[in-house]
Simulated assay, not measured.
Amino acid sequence: MSARPRRDPHAERARATRVGPAGRARRILGDVAPAAPVRPRRDPHALRTAAVPGPAGRMRLDPHGGELLAHMPSLAAPGAEQPIVVERPACLILAVLDLPGGRLEGSDLGLLAAARDLADRLEGAVLALTLHGRPDLGRLGVDRHIALDLPDRWDPAAALSVLGTVLADHAPAHILFAETPLLGADVARRLAAATGLPAAFAVHRLEPDEIRARGAGLDLVGPPPPIMTLHEVLLADRPEPVLREARPVAVAVRPDAGLIEDLGEVPVDLTGAPLAEADLIVSAGDGVTDWPAFHALAARLNATVGGSRQVCDRGLLPRDRQVGASGTLVAPRAYLAFGISGAPQHLQGIERCQRVVAVNTDLHAKMIERADLAIVADAQAVMPALQTLLEQRRHG
């Protein structure tokens, strides 16, 4: 029998040792196999060069090694977003914006959202008409835009003259207005009377083949007519911020001189105006104890007075001043809440307010959470301070 060869541990250790990626010596257990190729280390700097902007503008790493850049070139080059173009629409939906004071209001945005939805269902395009203003409507669902620079005053004859030209040149399938007094609602009714076209007012449900409109306490159901005004229920939506062409369209118009002369606004005390029609509301809750200061501030701002249910239950304000689900649903441009904690019914009543300013001593009050601007302080100290500030600005 031959002698068993003696093992050499030093030679075995040398054969079983490999150098890892970090430069450290590693032992390979079991049978010694040929050294596998070392996996290259990922370079984070190279990965960042392949980052692409996400929907929110943040940079995102491409997990596919650059394939995403090849398939989505619009994301690879910031600023190269291409607008949606509707070249041959089946029809045109004309949206006549109010633009009071040259500003886009919530009713205008809701009107564009409804027009966009109707145009998509009919495979059409949205044609927006602004009589006195040139806002950027590219991300508001507009495919074509007629922008005029008429004087910003109440002139229904001039509006009808422009609309007659637009209808003759473009023949829109439907003309949409917002149901707003002295603005869209007034012009829509004048247009229907002047042209004899069928019309429906205060439409609260709009489908391509059926509408529901409110009139004389009844719901009127039928096919969508050429002229429609939209109820505030439909004006609550907002258009998706997708870039569209908003192609400028020129219209040669010579507005007729009307028989009505606009003498401007007449000063009116709005403190007792209906809450549903108010643009600025100053509202009080249980946190208000200095009622003379509250009413003085409302008069100084010429704001409509409102209040919470608790205040009206105690007789501190009339019942018609109650804001909330069990009172009046309001939609002003600005809502100033003094000492209101924010009960669920009250918050439901101010859902459609554009801006909410809350004054409360409780940092964790629901009204503070809802507010666009919050002042954590006693209402009794803030109200006279606001009056002082207003007087200082009034006198320069």
Rank of each mutant, 00 (worst) to 15 (best):
E369W: 09
A213W: 08
A158Q: 01
L317H: 11
G66V: 10
L131V: 05
V376N: 12
V266W: 08
A250T: 11
L140A: 04
P223E: 10
E105V: 02
A246H: 03
R116S: 10
D117I: 10
P255I: 09
R153F: 14
R190Y: 03
L263N: 07
A128Q: 00
P318E: 13
L230F: 00
D143G: 06
G396W: 10
R205T: 06
G272E: 08
P151W: 01
L336S: 09
A22V: 13
G101Y: 04
D237E: 15
A381C: 01
R7T: 14
G272W: 00
C353Y: 05
A284H: 00
G215A: 12
L69C: 07
G324F: 00
I368F: 04
A200M: 04
S161I: 05
E207R: 03
V187I: 13
L137S: 08
L336H: 03
R41K: 14
G342E: 14
A303D: 15
V166N: 10
A325F: 06
V305F: 14
A22K: 10
G217K: 14
P151V: 05
I175Y: 11
P172K: 05
G164W: 04
M383H: 09
R4N: 05
R333P: 10
P37L: 06
A114N: 04
V359M: 03
L109N: 07
P135A: 01
V357F: 01
L336R: 04
Q348F: 14
P198A: 06
T361C: 10
F338E: 02
L234E: 00
R333E: 15
R103F: 12
D98C: 02
A296P: 03
P274Q: 04
L129E: 11
P172E: 05
N302A: 00
M228I: 05
V249H: 01
G258H: 12
C91S: 00
A202R: 05
A200S: 11
R4M: 07
H145I: 06
R190G: 01
I260D: 08
N360G: 06
E232N: 05
P9K: 00
P9S: 02
T17M: 14
L127T: 09
A343N: 09
R134K: 10
D136F: 03
C312H: 01
A11E: 11
A192G: 03
A119Y: 12
V221W: 06
L127W: 07
A325R: 10
